[in-house]
């Protein structure tokens, strides 16, 4: 039997495209985040609140990823920001190729901050580099405090954790200190924000962090 050595990552092609995206973003001075979470954690609402916060002060563009429909793009476009919807047609994550294609419809020169909202899925998007500056994982308190331990890779590969829906804490069985400590066990360097997109609590702190990162 003949053996051919091939030391290469399976996702090498994705990583190469992600590097191209990263260079293009850097050349144009664009800061990019890749927002990941389970379906229904509040990613789109966080995007809306973030756009609202920076309204008139920063040029934001948005890439929305969903398995079906352009409902999220419709929501976000109400804020008068450029938005592109990627429909994956069953695909469980965005990959760098999809993002690169969708970026053709955006004007990077006049963008300061690019928000990529990934497909709602706490597993697959963790492995795909999209050329972003950082992954931001969103979890809502209704999902329970054990999720970081059950889906470690997403928390390991993210720089920021946004704990959303904290206004619901009195009504759900979730210990937020336990949630925070579980996440920090998986990734001790995670920067954690506790927010409620409904009441607005904590949104300023999250947005200040973004502003200081740009």
């Amino acid at each position: 039997m003949e053996i051919i050595k091939i030391e290469r990552k399976v996702l090498a092609k994705n990583d190469a495209v992600a590097s191209e995206i990263r260079s293009a973003l850097q050349e144009n001075g664009v800061f990019a985040v890749n927002i990941v979470s389970s379906p229904g954690s509040g990613k789109t609402t966080l995007v809306e609140k973030t756009i609202e916060h920076f309204s008139g002060r920063m040029n934001i563009s948005v890439i929305e990823g969903d398995v079906q429909t352009d409902l999220d793009a419709q929501r976000v476009s109400a804020y008068n920001v450029p938005v592109v919807q990627i429909i994956t047609n069953g695909g469980c994550h965005l990959d760098a190729g999809l993002v690169k294609d969708s970026m053709k419809s955006l004007d990077l020169v006049s963008t300061d901050f690019l928000i990529i909202e990934n497909v709602g899925n706490l597993v697959c998007p963790a492995g795909y580099d999209l050329g972003e500056d950082m992954k931001v994982v969103v979890i809502s308190v209704t999902e329970g405090d054990d999720k970081p331990l059950k889906y470690p890779k997403m928390f390991m590969n993210s720089k920021v954790l946004v704990i959303n829906k904290i206004d619901l804490l009195p009504y759900v069985n979730c210990n937020i200190n336990q949630l925070r400590s579980n996440a920090l066990k998986i990734n001790p360097d995670l920067k954690v924000f506790e927010v409620s997109c409904t009441t607005g609590e904590g949104i300023n702190a999250w947005c200040d962090f973004i502003e200081n990162s740009i």
Binding site: E2, I3, I4, K5, I6, V10, L11
Partner: peptide, 14 residues
């Protein structure tokens, strides 16, 4: 890790 190591090739289906 998620990477290739090697390909094994043979004419016969051993």
């Amino acid at each position: 890790e998620l990477k290739f190591k090697e390909f094994k090739i043979s004419e016969s289906e051993e």
